[in-house]
Simulated scan of single mutants.
Amino acid sequence: MDIVRSILLFLLAALAEIGGAWLVWQGWREERGILWIAFGVLALGAYGFVATFQPDPHFGRILAAYGGVFVAGSLAWGMIVDGFRPDRWDVIGAGICLVGVAIIMYAPRADSMGA
């Protein structure tokens, strides 16, 4: 159950961070205004809290693993929201990142300290 919870939290974090950054981008670069930027900042702030709910207690591990989720999530966001078409190297790179996430987060540990 912890793995399912962890994965759902990573997905929520990606939605908040990538969505927040996209809103700021839209507000500033696409000149949609301060309200878009404000909602983006709020979403980015929410992202900062999501990681604290991860079952693993190690900040460095959580953020390192989230980096891989962010890479894959950013490509997915671009496809869904902006019509971006990743090439095979984008897909391969994102896949490698997700394998890294799985190893960092869910590999069996020798003890509770992650040794």
Rank of each mutant, 00 (worst) to 15 (best):
D2A: 13
D56S: 12
G68F: 01
V71P: 02
G60P: 05
F53T: 12
R29K: 13
A94K: 05
F53C: 12
Y106G: 08
M79Y: 11
E30N: 05
A46F: 12
Y106F: 15
D82T: 13
I3Y: 11
G78D: 03
G68P: 04
A43Y: 02
M1P: 13
W22G: 00
G95V: 09
I104S: 09
L63T: 12
Y66L: 03
Q54R: 05
V81R: 03
G20I: 10
F39T: 10
R109L: 08
G114P: 09
L23P: 02
R109I: 01
R61N: 02
T52H: 11
T52G: 06
A14H: 00
G48L: 01
G33S: 08
L35V: 10
F84T: 09
Y66T: 05
L23A: 07
D90N: 10
A102M: 11
I3C: 08
G73A: 14
A107V: 09
A65D: 00
Y66A: 02
A16R: 00
V81N: 01
A102N: 03
L44F: 10
V71T: 09
I18C: 02
Y106H: 13
R5S: 14
L63M: 15
G73W: 12
A16Y: 08
R88K: 14
L35Y: 03
I96G: 04
Y66D: 04
P108N: 13
L11M: 15
S112T: 12
V101P: 03
Q54S: 04
W36F: 15
V99P: 02
G27I: 08
D90I: 01
G27T: 04
F70V: 11
G95T: 08
G45Q: 06
D82E: 14
R29T: 08
G93L: 06
I103Q: 10
V4F: 15
L35H: 01
I18R: 02
F53A: 15
D2W: 08
G114M: 09
V50L: 07
E17K: 00
P55Q: 06
D2Q: 11
G83A: 11
S6A: 09
W22T: 08
H58W: 12
G93W: 04
L9Q: 03
L35P: 04
Y66G: 03
P86L: 04
M79C: 09
G93R: 03
L12E: 09
L42C: 11
W36R: 01
R88T: 15
R109N: 06
P108Y: 10
F84D: 11
Q54P: 04
I62K: 08
A43H: 03
R5C: 10
V4G: 05
R5E: 14
E31L: 11
